[in-house]
Simulated scan of single mutants.
Amino acid sequence: MAVVLLAAGLVLSCSQSDEKLPILSRREAVTKVVDGKSVTDSVYQTIPDFAFVSQYGDTVTAKAIANKIYVADFFFTSCPTICPKMKVQLKRVYETFKGNPDVMLLSHTIDPAHDSVAVLREFADNLGVSGRQWLFVTGDRETIYDIGQNSYMVTAQQDSSAPGGVVHSGAFILVDKQRHIRGIYDGTTQEGVDKLMNDINRLLAEYKS
């Protein structure tokens, strides 16, 4: 299954010579009143507030990732194609940054009808994941699809002809502490995830400086 990315409208925030990672979030027009006059400015979109349910049965909101760098992805536990590769690769990220309070992982199921809290908990346990640094979340399907496409700039859609009945992106999305997207990577390959981990370290260094 091909990795599908929605890359239209990406805006790079820095030059090639800048050591900081670019901001890949789309820009949006924001109008505000300054000195009694309406002023329209172009600002980077951020990942919006959300409310999903984790593998532990509690509600996960944007507060969970406040002041953290995190990696987001979209998968489903019964996926017969790219998801097993993705989870092997994301486990590498988990093991590398395990215990780092500035880094989290957030995996969204795109098959909430099947992927209940109990199913997600078993899936996490089988991966050897414990604690709250890597959360597997479920919720309303359309809400998950919407945040994936319109905020994280990846896609998932039902397709009865596709293995597992869903076509979806194999991307890992790196998000900074201001909830801006700073990188999109092929989560099915070692090379893509090596670059992700290198960029996580670059982003951590950016905040330290």
Score class of each variant (00 low, 15 high):
A113T: 09
N67H: 13
G57Q: 14
L135Y: 10
H180L: 14
D176S: 03
I65N: 06
K63H: 12
K63W: 06
Y152K: 03
A2W: 07
R202W: 06
N67P: 10
T109M: 09
T31D: 14
G57S: 14
G164L: 07
L5G: 06
G170E: 11
Y145I: 00
Y145E: 01
R132C: 00
F172I: 03
S107N: 07
L24M: 07
S160C: 00
L204E: 02
R121Q: 15
A156N: 08
K177R: 15
R182I: 04
A64Q: 00
D102Q: 13
Q133C: 04
F97H: 01
K63T: 15
E142A: 13
V93W: 00
I23G: 00
R141E: 15
V3G: 12
W134D: 08
I181N: 02
N67E: 15
V4S: 09
A118W: 02
Q157I: 11
S54E: 03
G131V: 11
A171F: 01
A118C: 02
K91T: 08
S151T: 09
E19Y: 04
D111R: 09
V34N: 04
P163M: 14
L174F: 02
S116A: 06
V53F: 14
F52Q: 06
A118H: 05
N126Y: 12
S209G: 15
L174A: 04
E95P: 00
A7D: 11
S161L: 10
L24K: 03
N100C: 09
F123T: 01
S42P: 05
A162I: 08
D176P: 00
H180T: 08
D49T: 13
A7I: 10
Y207P: 12
K32T: 14
A62V: 10
R92E: 12
Y185H: 02
V71E: 09
Q178L: 11
G139V: 08
D140Y: 08
S17H: 01
Q190M: 12
D111T: 09
Q149A: 13
A72K: 07
N201I: 13
K177A: 07
L24W: 07
S130N: 06
E28P: 10
M104I: 02
F50N: 09
H108Q: 05
G131Y: 12
M197A: 03
I65E: 12
K98Q: 11
D35Y: 08
I69Y: 06
Y152H: 10
R202G: 09
A162S: 10
S15N: 14
P80V: 10
S42T: 11
H114D: 05
I23T: 12
F75G: 06
I200N: 04
